[in-house]
């Protein structure tokens, strides 16, 4: 485990109530794994007790943000702010429930002119929950 709970906040610019990543499990090369513990107070939990699909997209975006933050930290730079530029081929297979432990694999595929293309797969106990391709703009903090 690289970063857990409070420590992960050092890697991302988001703060409560919209923090959607609980830990950065490992990172090497262009790949990392993150986790999210789905709790009752999660911002994206709907009236039926399940998380909105958009919460998964935010979790994936913040996972990439944590990965980028980790890479910046390795170079002693502060965590950058990332904006979602595009979501493509997003599929949601089921909505997460309170108590679920989500695990996400992020792969940074390519980078050009400040735009990073990545792919992500989110699963829970080995079962696919969502997958997508996403582009993020990474804006270094000045």
């Amino acid at each position: 485990m690289l970063y857990e709970a409070e420590e992960v906040l050092g890697l991302i610019p988001q703060r409560e109530p919209v923090v959607m990543v609980s830990r950065l499990i490992d990172a090497s090369g262009n790949r990392c794994h993150t986790g999210l513990s789905v709790t009752a107070d999660n911002y994206f939990i709907e009236d039926d007790g399940l998380m909105a699909e958009t919460g998964l997209i935010e979790h994936i975006a913040q996972s990439a943000s944590a990965f980028a933050g980790h890479r910046y930290r390795m170079q002693s730079l502060p965590a950058p702010i990332g904006y979602i530029g595009e979501v493509r081929k997003f599929h949601c297979y089921r909505r997460p429930a309170i108590g679920d432990e989500l695990q996400t694999e992020i792969i940074f595929e390519a980078e050009a002119e400040g735009v990073t293309l990545m792919s992500a797969t989110t699963s829970c106990n080995g079962e696919a929950v969502a997958d997508t391709k996403m582009k993020i703009f990474v804006e270094p903090v000045r």
Binding site: E86, E109, A112, E113, V115, K135
Partner: peptide, 14 residues
Amino acid sequence: DSLRLVDLISAIQV
């Protein structure tokens, strides 16, 4: 455009 450039790079790489 600036968003799609990276798709070209990735497609060629893959």
